[in-house]
Design a protein around this nucleic acid. Structure first.
Lengths: 222, 222
DNA sequence: TACTCTTCTTAAGCAAAACTTAAGTTTTTT
DNA sequence: AAAAAACTTAAGTTTTGCTTAAGAAGAGTA
């Protein structure tokens, strides 16, 4: 459980760092926006505490930048601002929550916990009769356990998490492989093939559709 | 997208109901805690707005009760309370968020949207009884799913996005095919033909008109 | 370190689907 | 009725995706 603190006032960041570490969280501190964006990308923390007022880039800008790449990690704004307009602006830029300075540490902790709730509770996502357990890293197809390699697992997970929406190959390469330039070889196709083969224990229904010229889509609505 | 409002003051609940419905949400209203719990169970709303002060059961108690059965649906507290201690108590009881009265409707909306983020906001555009879903890359004509190829899809999408305006062939070739010089062969006509054929499940109305000497126009203002 | 086993990636052949062209047909306009 | 524009069809070409197999890269173990 790593929390990234993006905050330029060392008084506050030290206070947070120490308090959070006492609670068993790991922490990293960035003292400006650019560093914050870099760390968010590199360390993939589970949650980000972001100060509104920062040197170089404002919190809003940092938030937007992070959200470009990463839509999921909760971002919690620390703000002295109190006007509705500015709060809304923060939320619009992609933050999940905000807390007004001065805040009690206890309140902050509760807020953080909200975002971690459901973390430990077995994450199971499904597609038709296929069930994948993110904690156990296991895949059940029609009740039968099937062996999946890491890549196969990641790919299937990505598709299921984006169920009902076409995923382009570039998008997949970017999100599953983490490659940020144009897709070339047919790796995805090969993995798709492997996944389908392994899942096709009962092959009546096609849960993973090929959308020719576009990409692939997981879909279990009928 | 159904939102359950648990609130005893009808002034506030009406205000919320009306505002949310204008935004396209469906709403239900419960005027006390017990009714709220019952509706939460029965209707399975996507989000719950819960007043702190309620007759019969307090908001906290309602929240806990709902959370016993349902760990996932976001619960958002509406509270006049402003003390840290009470806020914390609310969060501990399982709420995902809270907003202090008096609040601006705009702020509430943003808060609600946070919890709906990542939900597949289906991008659907329509032309008469034809419905195309950009995320699923699917086309429904009169409720029937029709198979479209990439080009056909792009072309139809382009026409619909420019509904009510004539699109010249050159414009189409430029925007759909990405060719930046003079149009020559009759490709567009061929595709138009294919599209019409596929869509003409009920052919009374001509949603795609030929404007002789100019181009084509999608139009559903009968 | 070397050996082994597993997983990942590349490349090539094949088949099917989609795209384009062109020629003949129909419709519209003058 | 003639000419122009649009429609339709079908055949040839190109693109795309599937599948397989072989070799590269990585992980684990002696």
């Amino acid at each position: 459980m790593r929390i990234l603190i993006i905050e330029d006032e060392t008084g506050i960041s030290n206070f947070l760092k120490q308090g959070l570490e006492e609670q068993g969280y790991e922490t990293s501190v960035a003292t400006d926006g650019l560093q914050g964006i870099a760390l968010a990308k590199k360390q993939k923390p589970e949650l980000i505490l972001l100060d509104w007022m920062l040197p170089k880039l404002t919190g809003i800008e940092v938030c937007k930048k992070i959200r470009e790449k990463d839509k999921k990690t909760p971002i919690l704004f620390l703000t002295a601002k109190d006007t509705i307009q500015e709060t809304i602006e923060g939320l619009k830029s992609g933050a999940n929550d905000y807390i007004k300075k001065p805040f009690s540490f206890e309140e902050l902790l509760e807020r953080i916990k909200i975002h971690f709730r459901n973390e430990g509770t077995a994450k199971i996502i499904t597609l038709g009769n296929i069930e994948i357990n993110l904690l156990k890293h296991s895949v059940l197809a029609g009740g039968q356990e099937v062996n999946f390699t890491q890549r196969e697992f990641d790919l299937l997970q990505y598709l299921i998490e984006n169920k009902g929406r076409v995923c382009t190959r570039n998008e997949i390469i970017e999100n599953v492989w983490g490659i940020h330039f144009e897709y070339d070889t047919g790796v995805i196709d090969v993995f798709m093939n492997a996944i389908r083969k392994k899942l096709k224990i009962n092959k009546e229904e096609e849960f993973i559709k090929t959308i020719r010229g576009v990409g692939y889509m997981a879909d279990d609505t009928h």
